[in-house]
Design a binder for these strands. Structure first.
Ligand SMILES: [Mn+2]
Ligand SMILES: [Mn+2]
Ligand SMILES: [Zn+2]
Ligand SMILES: [Zn+2]
Lengths: 152, 152
DNA sequence: TTTCAATTGCAAACCGTTTGCAATTGGGTG
DNA sequence: CACCCAATTGCAAACGGTTTGCAATTGAAA
């Protein structure tokens, strides 16, 4: 029962751990960045930049600052980018030492999001990679359907 | 060995079959549409609108016309839209009576595309749907990696 | 406190896609 | 075949998400 930590566990991360990760890269802990991390920290599902912008406490920051912050956090591996196919990128905080790879089930009517633990079977993926001579193969996978409340 | 036809077989479709499908919906067979179908017909992989535009014979049509044509063809189920996560939609011709559902393996360096026959295991997908009370669940799935020619 | 690279706000630029509108045209009709 | 009109097109403007240049601001090291 050692470090039953990551795997893509969604337990809230300590703010100090997050700012620590930033500091290590000689990145400043600014007001906007702290506010953004705080919002991501308390949100269990992927958020669009606009949603983060809207959740910002009054006197938040510029939208462009959020775009720049998410680029930075993604580069540092602190957030994972997801694409639900609606044209807007979504971001989710990632635990330290976790690559954040996982999937979602999205309601096509109300946009409800469910975190999914399953992944594409690696045996099949390996076979696909080998069969085509590809290396470092990974996948992007999201599920779509009608949630209980949206079925007719 | 009856109709070993579709399934997502990539054998070129007859132009007459394509125009026929359009006519049935009281849609006009215009120059631009014929040209677009011709390009899709001879291309085995998903194409962006810009790529279609570039492949158009001289004196082609407006880009907006291609966007409108692809919307129409998608609505009629004649093409399937794919998303490789680079911000541009891609379209592939779909056989009659086929929903076009399938996946790709894309080289992240040179963008080479391989058509993939495998699909996400339906037993697992059904379990995911049931476990969350979702109905009509489907998925979007693409693979990414380094093709033989791009491995260092 | 001083100092300066990092960061931000703002506005403009970008890029894929959509749309309004007037001009054009495919394909039934007579 | 000439006519007619809804369907289609070209063009230019608008859109929504994202990026970027630049001058002003600021975190944190010294
Ligand atoms: Mn998630
Ligand atoms: Mn394909
Ligand atoms: Zn996976
Ligand atoms: Zn599939």
């Amino acid at each position: 029962m050692k470090n039953c930590a990551h795997k893509h566990s969604h337990q809230r991360q300590e703010m100090s751990a997050l700012t620590g990760r930033l500091r290590q890269q000689s990145c400043k802990i600014t007001g906007p960045r702290a506010a953004i991390l705080e919002i991501l920290r308390q949100h269990p599902h992927p958020l669009t930049n606009k949603e983060i912008f809207a959740s910002l406490p009054k006197g938040g920051c510029d939208l462009a600052t959020i775009y720049r912050a998410m680029q930075l956090l993604e580069k540092l591996g602190m957030v994972k980018r997801f694409d639900f196919g609606d044209g807007a990128a979504r971001f989710e905080l990632v635990g330290e030492g976790d690559d954040g790879h996982h999937h979602h089930l999205v309601c096509t009517r109300c946009a409800e999001v469910v975190e999914i633990g399953e992944c594409f079977p690696s045996e099949i993926e390996n076979r696909i990679a080998r069969a085509n001579g590809f290396k470092a193969v990974t996948h992007r996978l999201e599920f779509f359907g009608l949630c209980p409340g949206c079925q007719t």
